[in-house]
Amino acid sequence: MMSEYNSGKISFYADYFSLVFENDDFIVINKQADINFHSEDGEFGVVVAAEKALGCKLYSVHRLDKMTSGIILLAKSPQIAAQLTLLFTEHSIQKYYLAISDKKPKKKQGLVKGGMEKSRRGMWKLTKQKDNLAITQFFSRSLGDGLRVFLIKPQTGKTHQIRVALKSVGSPVCGDPLYAEKLNHYDRGYLHAYQIDFTLNGDDYSFYCEPQKGHLFNCEGYVKTINEVGNFALLNWPKV
């Protein structure tokens, strides 16, 4: 159980994250949108914020883009970090994301598969090559008012993978500063790491967390859809 001291410290860093779960091996946090993962330009990122709040060294085993909110898993020791990294490498950890777009997709569900290649201005693009292969499964549902929510299961973990995948089907993420239209007035980039499932040392874990910021994540259509979907792992995902 967390001490009152740590609870207070976590509240102090609420602009960076909220704590979802903690045990002797790892923590699970809900990262806020528009927060750097690692420290940059003299400002510390969410990992350092979590270390300061909990008063312990933490080890990253995966990451989220600055604009993306949601679940991050952080190990408490190099040994657990190595185990979790292996699970990610073996694709034994399942991650599920949410995104909202204001553009109708070329297809409502399916698979986006292609090579990831650096483009201009820090962007990435999909190619027909198999180098740096990215595989993304998705469903989409209408929220009304021209909006669609995407339920996403990435099979790989490439930089900007989901953002590029949705752009490729004609539905860039609302508020995405790189892949959406420049002239938009959204209050955040609408991509959120919603759920993570894995087994570690014989114990099964499943965590999910709702986005804490973003007016589109509070609209009636979104809330209704997420309540209807339930556990993302139980969906009949498109075949890879």
Rank of each mutant, 00 (worst) to 15 (best):
Q137D: 00
K31T: 06
V223T: 11
G42Q: 09
S69W: 04
Y5N: 12
W237I: 03
T127D: 06
E51F: 06
L64P: 04
G110T: 10
F217T: 05
S168N: 14
K52I: 12
R148M: 03
L111W: 06
A193Q: 06
G110M: 09
T225S: 14
F232S: 05
D187N: 05
K125P: 04
Q94T: 07
K52E: 12
K182D: 03
R63T: 06
Q79R: 13
Y205S: 07
K108C: 02
G221I: 07
K9L: 14
G230A: 08
T159Q: 14
N6I: 02
C56T: 13
Y96V: 11
K104V: 09
K95H: 01
N36I: 01
R63W: 01
K113H: 13
T159C: 07
T225Q: 15
A134E: 02
C56K: 15
Y13D: 02
Q79W: 06
S7R: 15
L87M: 02
I27E: 03
S101H: 08
A75F: 03
Y179I: 10
D15W: 04
G8M: 03
S7Y: 06
L178I: 10
F21I: 07
F17G: 10
F12E: 10
S206P: 08
Y194E: 13
P105Q: 11
I80E: 00
L178N: 04
Y179K: 05
K130H: 02
Y222M: 14
L133A: 00
K108N: 12
H38E: 13
G157I: 03
E4S: 08
E40D: 08
F44L: 13
S101D: 03
I72E: 00
S92Y: 03
